[in-house]
């Protein structure tokens, strides 16, 4: 079953070859009419789902709009989008005064570090677990699965103690390790599942060519795992981009290392909240993720196609 799937080009690519597909069918009037109806049906679907989607995203569009309003306008304007007057200086306040430029840099570094670490370590572990029998394999798997459901809310306490012991507290390295080190069981299991289904011929061919263990993994297996990696990247991205507690604790004495999520805190004061600044800050931290998703979404599809060709 795996192989059948593997030979199946992705649907999006297929779509572009539409004419080729229709050739298989005799061109007859009723079918053509059916297609026309179907096209209308699709537009109707788009309309319905689109309306739902708009409703779905409206609150966040409102945040985007709020980032251009002043605080009173946010509250008195109800859910209207257009500001009474434009206040782009909210962004200036967030970017410069609240140091979101620095926070952005930190967040990008920390997220990138976490992603690299998670992908590499989970792929390596998933690979050997999937393709080799070795002593302790079952134990490793059992421990991984068992810890999936443990509530992690309190882990921050021992993690801080441990990091302090190792001299990793207050360092970005320590923070990356803490974010990427724990959990991520799902990522390991994703790789296990993927690698256990890669046809053995690929590996054998590489070995025949004289490739060693490392070469087989890095040159053959890891590149094949594109789609899983994309998924893992997205999941890791989500968890580390918005992670709050660990970055908070790891930047107590080093405020210049703070991340966007922690920096957001600065807008909520004792007696007042700078809602407009907060909205601007939220928009700043949201836009990169949306872009990344739009990009990776394409990668999902092409990744499969690529994996299939090899």
């Amino acid at each position: 079953m795996t192989t059948t799937q593997a030979q199946e080009p992705s649907r999006d690519l297929h779509a572009r070859r539409e004419p080729g597909r229709t050739r298989r069918r005799p061109v007859s009037d009723p079918r053509a009419r059916g297609r026309g109806r179907r096209r209308i049906g699709r537009w109707a679907q788009t309309l319905v789902v689109g309306a739902l989607g708009l409703l779905w995203i409206y609150p966040l569009l409102w945040v985007l709009a709020a980032s251009f309003k002043d605080s009173l306008d946010i509250f008195s304007g109800g859910l209207g989008l257009l500001p009474d007057s434009w206040h782009p200086e909210n962004y200036l306040r967030a970017w410069r005064d609240a140091n979101f430029s620095g926070y952005m840099m930190n967040t990008v570094l920390i997220t990138a570090g976490s992603i690299v670490l998670v992908v590499v370590r989970c792929a390596m572990a998933g690979y050997v677990i999937a393709r080799f029998r070795f002593l302790g394999r079952r134990v490793v798997l059992a421990v991984l699965v068992a810890t999936m459901f443990i509530p992690t809310g309190l882990f921050v306490v021992p993690v801080v103690e441990l990091s302090d012991l190792l001299g990793l507290l207050n360092t970005r390295t320590g923070l990356v390790l803490a974010i990427a080190g724990g959990g991520n069981v799902a990522a390991v299991l994703l790789y296990v599942g993927f690698f256990s289904r890669v046809p053995k011929e690929l590996e054998e061919a590489a070995v025949m060519d004289g490739a060693g263990f490392l070469r087989v993994f890095f040159r053959v297996m890891l590149p094949l795992s594109g789609p899983v990696t994309a998924t893992v990247v997205v999941l890791t991205f989500l968890s580390s981009w918005n992670n709050f507690f660990l970055p908070l604790v790891f930047t107590f004495s080093t405020p210049q290392n703070r991340t966007l999520a922690v920096g957001m805190m600065a807008f909520q004061g004792t007696n007042s909240t700078d809602w407009a600044g907060l909205a601007a800050a939220a928009s700043i931290s949201l836009v990169p993720i949306v872009l990344l998703f739009l990009l990776l979404q394409r990668y999902f599809v092409e990744g499969i196609a690529g994996a299939v060709k090899n």
């Binding site: 788009t46 409102w62 909205a279 939220a282 739009l294």
Partner: peptide
């Protein structure tokens, strides 16, 4: 459905709340 117009954009619309900061979600 790949032939669905604007499918990519619509997927994104449903995905964006996932990445929105909780503080701002609570507020909105």
């Amino acid at each position: 459905n790949p032939r669905l117009p604007l499918a990519g954009l619509l997927r994104t619309a449903f995905f964006v709340p996932v990445v929105a900061t909780t503080a701002i979600v609570g507020f909105v």
